[in-house]
Design a protein around this nucleic acid. Sequence first.
DNA 1: CAGCATCCCGTTTGATACTG
DNA 2: CAGTATCAAACGGGATGCTG
Lengths: 164, 164
Amino acid sequence: MKEGTPVIPQDLDTFHEVIRRSQEACDALSEAEDGLKREILAHAGNRWSLGVVHALGVAGTLRHAELARRLEGVTQRMLTRTLRQLERDGLISRRDHREVPPRVDYTLTELGRGLLQGMIPLWTWVIDNADAFRAARDRFDTDGGHGDDVPARTRSVASPVPRS
Amino acid sequence: MKEGTPVIPQDLDTFHEVIRRSQEACDALSEAEDGLKREILAHAGNRWSLGVVHALGVAGTLRHAELARRLEGVTQRMLTRTLRQLERDGLISRRDHREVPPRVDYTLTELGRGLLQGMIPLWTWVIDNADAFRAARDRFDTDGGHGDDVPARTRSVASPVPRS
DNA sequence: CAGCATCCCGTTTGATACTG
DNA sequence: CAGTATCAAACGGGATGCTG
């Protein structure tokens, strides 16, 4: 287990301090803000949003087709949808050159860059702990759910079918 | 517009530097990792996951019913679902005391605490820029989509119906 | 109290085909 | 090339009722 060591070495004290701060921040705001928070996160989890934002963050400006190529696997439909949503959220800006072969390009806004920056520590962390995630998942699925760590060990991995 | 000033004052140079670093981190890993990254984010956006993780982060350990009370609005079904998912991801750990009135409590794992910590800067940022988000949305919806910023200004706010 | 099963709805995602 | 329209599948999410 050469990866069992890192995983947030913070003291629990420090940890709760930080959480407290965020707690206050949340309480200081209305429910609407809390919804917004979750909404943004939800959009970020929207399957292609991350890829788009990241691609634009790296490349600066990209055309529709270029984005489609970089994400590879996305359909025009979903790409357009995603772009619309991101645009609506003010994360990217759309520029239509209105030329005869259509030409539209997208770029991150200030807001979009800010979000991307805010994301990086998080998902760098996710990548660093990818093994831990997989291990946890394996453990869970192998036990057949949490199984209950029943004293009588009748569980014996009856259902090898993971439902995810 | 007393809120038009802040919004990430970083230089573009610094910005691209940071993005570059994350780009390398991504490229250094397989597609599976990229999927994992998105998957985690998606789970985080799952409506109740955030609340559960946050609640556990603050309280340390909570029972099923206690969580239900704190989230208020969640159904047992969704709470159980969420807990299962989080458990599977290795973010929380479940402990069944197997007593006669059932008693199960949940707590964050090391991994869960790490994720929560990684989340905080992000969503603090979201809260800080809540106004900017709302403004962007207003702007977008009022224009009737991106509308095309057509030279002929025929748009004149025809559809006051926001479809979200 | 904890949690599972069932039904049921809306949204998201995708495959495909079509327009300017 | 950029975008829309339509259809169908998958999933999230809620309501309700039932177990141990």
